[in-house]
Design a protein around this nucleic acid. Structure first.
Length: 545
RNA sequence: UGGGGCGUCGCCAAGCUGGUCUAAGGCACCGGAUUUUGAUUCCGGCAUUCCUAGGUUCGAAUCCUAGCGCCCCAGCCA
């Protein structure tokens, strides 16, 4: 039998599991989830997980939950919840349903804990953290049982209830699963389930002084939400035996229904030239190396959005990168290329002179202005045309003129002809050093769109902006934040990651919307806070050589 | 070191119930064509080889054995 084909995508081991489960009737509909802890901003690395979970759900006609894993009140804040919801909505659009919260299941989780105690599968340990650590053993040495491991069910239950009632200080006791202190898998050596934490929770307030550990809470969250496939990163692989142990104990006790969710691990996204460590990112913000968490250079999704990166670009990136279990590093240029690819399709073209040099067309009437109709996209006539004024004095790019050009240079230099894009062919007469102006003469019969426009063949084609009509604005030339392949801190910052310039833009850009535009021959830009951010440059095979 | 993973082209990644694999696809790269963006698009090229060494087999990237390399685990973090 042939395997189902995925148009535009390739098979991967997760799809195979899903298809098998669907085929066998284990599930009629799949349900995935994206479970961030609200303790920071979402970054580029999260995009893979988000798009994987929502993508699979969509592909197989299932659902994906956005669920906050808010089990550690010490680190979590509402501000993060808001920003995460925002970023997820931006990335997946209408597929993003209202968020769910692990904290909404605290009652049930506690009920499960009592059941575990009653069924002899959990106990209250009163060792100190240090003692616990010591008695856990090592990779090569089995752990030893806690002296409290054999407490009676009644005593355990009493202690647990009093823990919940707030009778003990932080750290006095902890609830542990009773599994095997000699397991070769350290995660099975009686992992902690609950710790006392007299901390106010951003959603449940002071209701609890006892909070579940991730290890314990996560499987239950998945089961409660009837998640079918619980996708997580490789480092949780060793945790899977406990995940299954817990769920089966609870299902056996009638607290959970089968089929139970299945945890599947995949390799997290590792990108070169970026730094995703929360600690170091915070430093960059606090020390003012960047403007904030949503600085367009930041590797956060909020930053990427202001940078002009698109959800569709991220989707293509996720597809291109694939899903597997091999730890791999993706070169940052792959991400840039995906953005470029998408932007090329959707961005209307505009002319913008970033580093202006004045050109005077000496034989063009002083007071004349022509409105030229210029296509918004050379390959997409349906995107229409726009009027752009042409006059005697123009701005061109400074490096489109050279006194003594290098070999192969085919733009402006004395005696050479070049086409002013969508306007006329001009011939360079000379460069007036005192006035810092290039003197040209135009060939009237070469006006674009007219019958004789092709009478003169030229190789060069440069963009321009009419001086008296130009819209002057700030343009931020953004480059990578880090110059090194695997940055470790501020020493690796790219000093040229942000250049602010005053550019001369075609007049229509005065009323720019929020959608991406291409500045011809430069790259893709997006209007942001009173100026334009460069999202990514165009490819350039000339500069390379 | 005990346990859990992973090793297929420069970067990803299919394939892994053995033959249709002298190994898919994408990206990068190299040609060449078109082009009023040195962009885009298009066409062509790009692993006799699958970490290494043995073995099983008529036949192995796919099975077995032994090595080697890399990642993860000893939070009352997630």
């Amino acid at each position: 039998m042939n395997k189902p084909q995925h148009p535009g995508s390739t098979s991967n081991f997760i799809r195979q599991v899903i298809e098998a489960d669907l085929a066998s009737g284990k599930h009629v509909k799949i349900r995935t989830r994206f479970p961030p802890e609200p303790n920071g901003y979402l970054h580029l690395g999260h995009s893979k997980s988000i798009l994987l979970n929502y993508g699979l759900a969509k592909e197989y006609g299932g659902l994906c939950n956005l669920r906050f894993d808010d089990t550690n009140p010490e680190k979590e804040e509402q501000e993060y919840v808001d920003s995460i919801v925002d970023s997820v909505k931006w990335l997946v659009g209408e597929q993003a349903a209202a968020p769910l919260y692990a904290s909404d299941y605290f009652d049930f989780m506690y009920q499960c804990a009592e059941h575990l105690v009653e069924s002899g599968n959990a106990y209250v340990d009163s060792q100190s953290a240090e003692e616990m650590k010591h008695n856990r053993g090592s990779f090569t040495q089995a752990g030893v049982d806690s002296p409290f491991r054999s407490r009676s069910t009644a005593e355990n239950l009493d202690l647990l209830k009093r823990m919940r009632a707030g009778e003990f200080p932080d750290g006095a006791h902890v609830l542990r699963a009773k599994i095997d202190m000699a397991s070769p898998n350290i995660n099975l050596r009686d992992p902690a389930l609950y710790r006392i934490k007299k901390e106010k929770h951003h959603r449940t307030g002071d209701k609890w002084c006892l909070y579940p550990m991730y290890t314990y809470a996560h499987p239950i969250e998945d089961a409660v939400e009837k998640i079918t496939h619980s996708l997580c990163t490789l480092e949780f692989e060793d945790q899977r035996p406990f995940y299954d142990w817990l769920l089966n104990k609870l299902a056996d006790g009638g607290l959970l229904e089968r089929p139970l969710p299945q945890q599947i691990e995949f390799a997290r996204l590792q990108l070169t030239h970026v730094l995703l460590s929360k600690r170091l990112l915070i430093k960059l913000v606090e020390e003012g190396h960047v403007d904030g968490w949503d600085d367009p250079r930041m590797p956060t999704l909020a930053g990427a959005r202001r940078r002009g990166y698109t959800p569709e670009g991220f989707r293509r990136f996720a597809e291109r990168v694939g899903v597997a279990k091999e730890n791999s590093w993706i070169d940052y240029s792959v991400l840039e290329d995906c953005m470029r690819e998408h932007l090329n399709e959707i961005a209307p073209r505009r002319m913008a002179v970033l580093d202006p040099l004045k050109v005077v067309v000496e034989n063009y009437p002083t007071d004349q202005t022509e409105e030229l109709l210029i296509p918004n996209h050379p390959q997409k006539p349906d995107m229409g045309k726009r009027p752009v004024p042409f006059s005697r004095e123009l701005w061109i790019e400074r490096d489109d003129y050279q006194d003594s050009p290098p070999k192969g240079y085919f733009r402006l230099f004395p005696g050479n002809k070049v086409r002013l894009r969508y306007a006329y062919v001009v011939e360079c007469v000379s460069y007036d050093k005192a006035a810092d102006t290039v003197r040209c003469r135009y060939l009237p019969e070469t006006r674009s769109g007219t019958p004789g426009s092709d009478s003169v063949k030229v190789k060069g084609n440069i963009h321009w902006v009419s001086v008296k009509h130009a819209h002057q604005a700030e343009v931020r030339l953004l480059d990578r934040l880090f110059k090194t392949e695997k940055p470790e801190g501020q020493d690796d910052l790219n000093p040229g990651s942000l250049k602010k310039i005053r550019a001369q833009l075609e007049s229509g850009l005065r009323e720019a919307g929020t959608e991406a535009v291409q500045f011809e021959r430069h790259g893709y830009f997006i209007a942001d806070r009173d100026g334009f951010n460069r999202t990514v440059t165009l490819r350039d095979s000339w500069q390379k050589t």
